[in-house]
Nucleic acid binder design. Structure first.
Lengths: 206, 206
DNA sequence: TAATACTGACTGAATGGTCAGATAATTAGC
DNA sequence: GCTAATTATCTGACCATTCAGTCAGTATTA
């Protein structure tokens, strides 16, 4: 029984789970959820349609498995980096840096996240008990905790820390969207100082 | 022939174009593009399915007409406000203020925009020659011009004005997403000072 | 009576998911 | 070791459903 998600173990001919996830990621990223068909994914993964249903319960389950896998990867990286010693503000800077770098290396994945339509999110939130939505907010929580710490240490102003986390994520996010729309000429990572500068000291000339 | 879009004129029994647009806005906002069916829209608009095809060429055309209509409304409002005299920074503040207020009054519309999946955007970009995408960037251009002016007048630092416009939009956007996810307890407009403060002077304690 | 506006049953194509059977791996019997 | 029997894995033709778009016909207005 495949139950909740991926990975039953037995003898496999090839590692279909991984292959299917990869194919799904690629296609969902390119076309979005609804326009991507299971037949296409099967073809891309060089498997039969039925095989997909051996590893995943249905299309939605597959979609969320793709997102979940990647998101875990990003969050683990950020979490790890943030646990290293340093000033709170320095660690916030590091988090931004890792985030931007990760997005740059995972354009495909980022596009999947972008293309998550509100309606689908809502519908699946119920079905999947917010597995993904929960994860999205884990990022905000990490930033939130850092910012709170920075406030306690009087490194930054005592504003609403959660909203500041949201704003910071918004800055990073918008730069990424812009970067993608600009056909990716320059490196996205190079914008990390700009993001930081605006967040840190604003645009005003004193 | 209905050709490019809405509005042929002749004697109508009722104002179907407007009714259909309104119904479509509501449903697309609630469910996203693909899960919303033409039958549902017809029912909501109290018209027959065929009538919709009298006013719009197809589902995509209808979808983009909804967005276009609303987006024009917002942009006109901002444009108008921004043309009034005042310091550049004051006018930027006004733009933020109007934007947040508009989103608050048009939750439904905002959700439609949110749910525009990347794949659909791409596909239709070609078909519709970027009618909508173009409009989205008109907002950035308005901000860009204001920021450039502020830089010239030495009101703010000489950073990349376009990227600053993108960042500012990102701040507003992320606060809105957060506001919606929080089930809309407090007014979104009340966050305009926070958005402005961060953008203007950052979070640093000098 | 003619022209225009509207209707909704119908159609054809697309596609998510199934399942009976094919294929390969593993084990049992010799 | 080798083959047969058993189990695990995989396949893709098929089915059921959904839905965008059509069009012959009805209602309304001029």
């Amino acid at each position: 029984m495949k139950s909740d998600s991926i990975f039953y173990k037995g003898k496999r001919r090839r590692d279909f789970a991984a292959q299917i996830l990869q194919a799904a990621e690629k296609l969902f990223a390119k076309k979005g959820f609804y326009p991507t068909t299971i037949d296409e994914i099967a073809k891309e993964a060089k498997s039969a349609k039925g095989t997909i249903y051996l590893y995943f319960n249905n299309k939605e389950d597959l979609f969320f498995s793709v997102i979940e896998t990647k998101l875990d990867l990003l969050l683990d990286k950020i979490q790890e980096a943030v646990e290293k010693p340093g000033s709170a503000s320095q660690r916030i800077k590091t988090a931004i840096s890792i985030h931007l770098k990760f997005l740059e290396e995972n354009k495909n994945f980022f596009k999947v996240m972008q293309s998550l339509p509100e309606g689908l999110k809502k519908k699946l939130e119920r079905k999947l008990k917010g597995r993904v939505v929960e994860k999205q907010s884990r990022y905000i929580e990490i930033l939130d905790r850092l910012i709170q710490e920075a406030i306690n240490r009087k490194e930054i102003k005592a504003l609403d820390s959660k909203k500041l986390a949201v704003i910071l994520m918004g800055i990073v996010h918008s730069l990424t969207v812009y970067w993608i729309s600009q056909r990716e000429k320059k490196s996205l990572s190079s914008d990390k100082s700009l993001a930081w500068q605006v967040f840190w000291e604003g645009v005003s000339k004193e």
